[in-house]
């Protein structure tokens, strides 16, 4: 560092090597300071990712050395009916979950974006399920959807409707899981929307009012464009979360009845950790990664048409 203070009388030619040395030293220090993170990144992220790519091209049961099979696992995957069924289940779950949670989170955020007494309490109430573990949520869900003792069937009974087997019915199981997932996750997205709503300048609403815009028009032409960045973030986060969904089905249905709620990550887990097929499980993981990436890229491409960053 002292070189800098003494360098005023030096020529440009003299300065160049010392500047290079200084830059090199600063770079070295930067690397040294960043090394704990870099070590973490290399050892715990990059290395496992690369290893799983390698394992996806092997037969690997964790106990004997991996045997290279090229794209054999991927070929098997494309002919694996169960894999496609789990992907279908995941897509169905996503189609129900993503729009419902996004719309409900927005509605709640608008409802709770008021300066009223006790509003913090309401906001906290919606956030409680977010911080609860899936095991706890599963118990709550059982209290609602248990076919014998659950509240849902009691309500249906009061309305004179027949009881349903919510989580034991192959048709109802995914909508029921999506409903529970929305209940658990909506609070988090609501907080994101609240932040987005509060970032919209009040003057825009005032200007719209002066121009005679109705409440709906203000929502349509001021609020929605104003929170389009948040909406995009919520959609991307929720989509990724859905495609990676595991814990909920593991705890609540274990993929049942008869595989009707088996999502792709649960299938991956079973192949790897129950059936000793780590190579095949890695192939499933990579296909899923490519799908998540593709979906996210599509969402990024489409955002140009409807997201406004003010």
């Amino acid at each position: 560092m002292t070189v800098l203070t003494r360098g005023t009388e030096r020529t440009a030619a003299q300065e160049q090597p010392s500047a290079r040395r200084r830059n090199a030293r600063e770079r070295a220090w930067a690397v040294a300071f960043a090394s704990p993170y870099l070590l973490h990144l290399v050892a715990l992220t990059a290395w496992p990712v690369l290893a799983s790519l390698f394992f996806s091209m092997t037969e690997y049961d964790l106990m004997s050395p991996p045997r290279f099979v090229g794209f054999g696992n991927f070929a098997r995957l494309f002919g694996d009916e169960t894999f496609w069924r789990t992907l279908g289940n995941t897509a169905y779950f996503a189609v129900l979950f993503v729009p419902t949670q996004t719309a409900l989170a927005l509605l709640l955020a608008i409802a709770l974006n008021q300066r009223l007494r006790g509003m913090a309490l309401f906001r906290a109430a919606y956030f409680v399920p977010v911080v609860s573990s899936w095991v706890v949520v599963a118990y709550v869900a059982d209290a609602v959807f248990n076919p014998q003792t659950g509240i849902a069937n009691q309500v249906l009974g009061l309305a004179g409707l027949p009881a349903e087997n919510w989580l034991q019915d192959p048709v109802l199981v995914i909508p029921t899981l999506a409903a529970v997932a929305v209940w658990k996750g909506v609070g988090y997205m609501m907080v994101l929307f609240l932040a987005g709503l509060q970032a919209i300048p009040e003057e825009r609403y005032e200007a719209a009012k002066i121009d005679g815009a109705s409440a709906w028009s203000r929502f349509r032409y001021v609020t929605l464009p104003g929170i389009s960045g948040t909406t995009f973030l919520v959609l991307v986060l929720t989509s990724i979360e859905t495609l990676q969904s595991f814990e909920q089905v593991y705890v609540m249905t274990d993929g049942g009845p008869h595989g009707a709620s088996e999502l792709t990550v649960l299938y991956l887990y079973r192949q790897g950790f129950q059936f000793f097929q780590m190579g095949y499980a890695s192939a499933v993981a990579w296909v899923l990664f490519v799908l998540v990436l593709a979906l996210t890229l599509v969402q990024f491409r489409l955002q140009r048409r409807w997201v406004h960053y003010a």
């Binding site: 248990n146 087997n165 034991q168 019915d169």
Partner: peptide
């Protein structure tokens, strides 16, 4: 039946 038994949980 199957549903009654399954509804008991794991």
């Amino acid at each position: 039946d199957y549903v009654t038994t399954e509804a008991l949980g794991k």
